[in-house]
Design a protein around this nucleic acid. Structure first.
Lengths: 332, 332
DNA sequence: CTGAAAGCGCTTACAG
DNA sequence: CTGAAAGCGCTTACAG
């Protein structure tokens, strides 16, 4: 049997499609109760499901937003996506998820796809130098909100971020107050603003204490493997470190594994600090001391800003910078 | 400036929209080289992006598939989603992700939504008693593939599963061979076939060795918290257990945390086995011994079956049951 | 080798 | 209070 359309309902009810459309879309101020109820009843009986593709073509809106992120398998991003989806759902939008693997070409491909689907707006977690892709978005009048990751030259666009620099400074200060002096730092290797900001936080605070030494800086990808590799290098270079500060939790998890495996007791022999406060950070034993970003809140906020913009409303703030928090747990 | 359409290209090239459409869709066997090249050139110059909504309305296909899962934040599902997306992308489909939180009503809402978007097919990871929702899918002729989770009465429909029973049996056998006798089991608390199957695997194998005792069976949700709660109960009940077998890795991670925190050394004092082999299971220290499901392969396979069905092809198998593997690591 | 025309299922001024 | 008609941007027989 074929899908039932407004035409079917109209015929059944002896009215026009226009009337059916108005009733079903609650633009029925002027429709008589009797025909309204009749139409509603018939629609229900026939299990009518509106064809939102047809609707989109006519309204030029899809009721869908997209989220562009490096990898949904990474807890930071899946938690963010989940937050965005929760907010989108409550505002009656739905979400299309695109994994870019930090590949600028995949990113572009997906943006084209989203545009071709008449996407209403995009939550954008960039994989690096996305300037051209942003231009594509602007050229097509697609609203977007940057989350977590800044993009050069778009600092004044809608965005939701954390105060990375301050977060790392607080972490370093905490370590200092706990008597740690030899503090290594694993920076992110990708060409990202957040890597730089976190590194600067470390550098500034260490200099502040007269503790800065370039040799304490290592590098790794923002994932477990990155933490593993960097830590192997670290422990083969130093054997008297007080602490290691990782640029994110996934790295720190990888790092802890290497440390434990090599006989280090955490925090007795060495302290560890991460960044993000993903759910997994409280699952390890000992639990990871980390700098939290309000991931869920950031995701919801980004989504609500986006939807404001879509609806032509002006959000209170163009950029929001969230404070981070030092989450004291068991690794320091 | 407005979006460029086929009409614009047609005018520019001095041909009809039909011709443009044929060229751009490579149905251009009969188009002369000269007009083809001209059209292609103009489309490029104008940065033409096709309106796939209009296309969908006309073809009644969306080029999109949906995945319905409980929670993208759970690594098992995010890994599965990622696999599905990779396969979909390579076949030029894209993916819409829907989180149901195991809530049957959210599930229904999303199915309606997907139908209204003319979704071409659905990968379905059910949250429980989804029979009515499946009926909705069938009534609307939407192809679907069940993954991981069986649904009562739909055992003969397209599906990709693991041999849960056999997997747990192998795990219990391994423990037995390692000299473990007092083996507790934490079953899943949700009303799911996979819970039952895994429990049966445990029961059967324990009986086989004459080791079965109901009092060794505990229950928990399929997440970290579930593992934590169950394990607290377990260690307050027994203090001489040889091993705990958890129905999935997330539980096992929660369980290990409780055990370590309470002074147990793993595996010296107690052994732990999980199920799934999510990526996180090799991040903990000690690494988790577990029963692997080929998550990535299952996701890709499910997606390719679905797309075969969408294209009217008949897949080789309606149901696929993957073997599990015992992954020996550090917790036994 | 190419075009005119109808159709996909909606929405939306406009008219009455 | 309701309907006729045009339009959204494509695709697809069909005709020539």
């Amino acid at each position: 049997m074929n899908k039932v359309t407004m035409k079917d309902i109209a015929e059944m009810a002896g009215v026009s499609k226009a009337t059916v459309s108005m009733v079903l879309n609650k633009k029925d101020a002027s429709i008589s109760d009797i025909t309204r109820n009749n139409i509603l009843k018939i629609a229900k009986e026939m299990f009518y499901i509106p064809n939102s593709i047809a609707r989109s073509l006519s309204t030029k809106k899809s009721g869908t937003i997209g989220i562009i992120l490096p990898d949904i398998t990474n807890p930071f991003f899946s938690e963010m996506a989940r937050a965005v989806e929760d907010e989108a759902e409550s505002l009656e939008y739905n979400l299309m998820i695109c994994n870019t693997d930090n590949d600028i070409h995949k990113e572009e491909k997906y943006i084209q796809l989203l545009i071709s689907k008449l996407i209403d707006g995009i939550i954008f977690m960039s994989g690096g130098k996305s300037n051209e892709n942003i231009t594509l978005l602007k050229k097509n009048n697609v609203p977007f909100v940057l989350v977590d990751r800044y993009i050069d030259g778009y600092k004044d666009y809608y965005g939701v971020f954390s105060l990375n620099n301050q977060g790392v400074r607080n972490g370093v200060r905490y370590l200092y107050e706990k008597g740690k002096r030899k503090i290594a730092f694993v920076k992110g290797s990708e060409n990202l603003e957040i890597s730089t900001q976190r590194l600067e936080g470390y550098t500034d605070e260490m200099k502040n204490y007269g503790l800065y030494d370039e040799k304490y800086i290592f590098e790794g990808d923002f994932n477990v493997e990155g933490g593993i590799l960097a830590t192997q290098k670290i422990i083969s270079t130093f054997n008297n470190l007080d602490a290691i500060f990782y640029s994110n939790d996934m790295m720190a998890l990888g790092g802890m594994k290497v440390l434990l495996r090599n006989g280090y007791k955490i925090p007795r022999d060495i302290s560890v600090v991460g960044f993000d406060n993903i759910q997994m950070s409280s699952v390890t034993e000992p639990e990871l001391t980390t700098i939290s970003q309000p991931i869920y809140i950031m995701g919801k906020k980004a989504c609500s800003i986006l939807i404001d913009v879509i609806n032509g409303e002006i959000p209170d703030d163009k950029q929001i910078y969230y404070e981070t928090n030092l989450i004291i747990r068991g690794t320091v």
